[in-house]
């Protein structure tokens, strides 16, 4: 019964993630436009763009190989797999046991490396510069991300996202300064990984930005549709990840705990998640309107701050918890 419920939760979750992802982008664009006094496109515009691109036959540069054509598929598949691991409205999905934070980081890395290779495959300077900068940002973002994972694992005793989230949702951990620091670090990493202002500007591929959009400059037609969907989904995965760890309010419990009311709890979970995602989307828009894009070589400093916060979060935990014996068992070790 619980497995079946987990399966349905996963199906519903994937459908929600895929449909909401372009809407989140649309919401952020609309809000940004309104904040600077423009009307802005409707919220469903990203979906319309994707549908329009799907109807167009792609033009593929002659010098590219099969990898260029396969990359959008692989990178979307990797991001979808990552999306399947991050709980949105309910815990205890079928993928719960495998929802490991390190696997999640690995899958997002796979998506990134695939697109970077596709950028290199075009053989243009735009593709190369985008790929090079994307990988450099990943190099500085990854340590900060892993320190956030480290802090969470210290608190919860595991790297399993489902378990971490249910522990935090249960409220036994209480409010902690380390969590606040980890939250800021996670947000900075998320901004870098999703290519948002001030790290990258998703609205243009001019020389001033030249990261993600430069990397995928040669794409068109259905390939571009897949890439746009990948970028949108990645933003939603990070949003959901931050929500499920730092604000798991209203999330439906495991089907086994929910009992007969599970469907109602799910409905509540979906509503709560939708509201939370919308709020984060508005916050993102407000943040992006008030910030200018950083110079490329200032980005490592920003992510260095995230790294420092991650360090402080972990070390504060050690100091506040005193001795090793009082720490929870990491993954049952020791």
């Amino acid at each position: 019964m619980s497995t079946l419920a987990g399966f349905f939760a996963l199906l519903l979750h994937m459908a929600l993630m895929l449909t909401t992802a372009p809407l989140l982008i649309g919401l952020a664009r609309k809000a940004k436009a309104r904040m600077v006094g423009r009307e802005g496109p409707p919220i469903v515009q990203p979906w319309r763009d994707i549908a329009r691109l799907l109807r167009k036959q792609p033009v593929v540069a002659e010098s590219t190989s099969w990898l260029f054509r396969a990359a959008p598929l692989v990178s979307l598949a990797a991001t979808m797999s990552a999306a399947a691991l991050v709980p949105s409205f309910a815990l205890g999905m079928l993928s719960g046991d495998a929802s490991d934070l390190l696997v999640l980081a690995g899958l997002l890395g796979l998506g990134r490396a695939t697109l970077a290779l596709a950028g290199m495959d075009t053989g243009t300077s735009f593709g190369g510069i985008g790929a090079s900068r994307e990988m450099t940002f990943a190099v500085v973002a990854e340590p900060a991300l892993l320190l956030v994972v480290y802090t969470l694992a210290l608190l919860a005793g595991t790297t399993n996202l489902d378990a971490i989230s249910s522990l935090i949702a249960s409220g036994v951990l209480g409010l902690r300064i380390s969590m606040a620091m980890a939250l800021v670090a996670a947000c900075l990493v998320a901004i870098a990984e999703c290519g948002r202002v001030p790290v990258d500007n998703p609205a243009t591929h001019l020389e001033l930005t030249m990261v993600h959009e430069a990397m995928v400059l040669e794409y068109s037609g259905r390939h571009l549709a897949l890439i746009e969907l990948t970028a949108a989904l990645r933003l939603l995965v990070w949003t959901s990840l931050i929500l499920v760890i730092f604000a798991p309010f209203g999330i439906a419990p495991h089907p086994a705990e929910g009992g007969a009311w599970i469907v109602l709890l799910w409905v509540g979970g979906v509503l709560a998640w939708g509201v939370k995602v919308a709020i984060l989307g508005l916050v993102l828009a407000a943040f992006e309107t008030t910030r200018a894009k950083l110079r490329v070589f200032r980005v490592p400093e920003l992510l260095g701050a995230a790294l420092l916060l991650g360090f402080l979060a972990a070390i504060l935990l050690f100091v506040s918890q005193g001795f090793a014996a009082e720490l929870p068992r990491i993954g049952g070790l020791g």
Partner: peptide, 15 residues
Amino acid sequence: ARAVPGHRAGPLWDC
């Protein structure tokens, strides 16, 4: 189900 099959080859764009 939805997309137009195949692709056309063209020169590099790169602005």
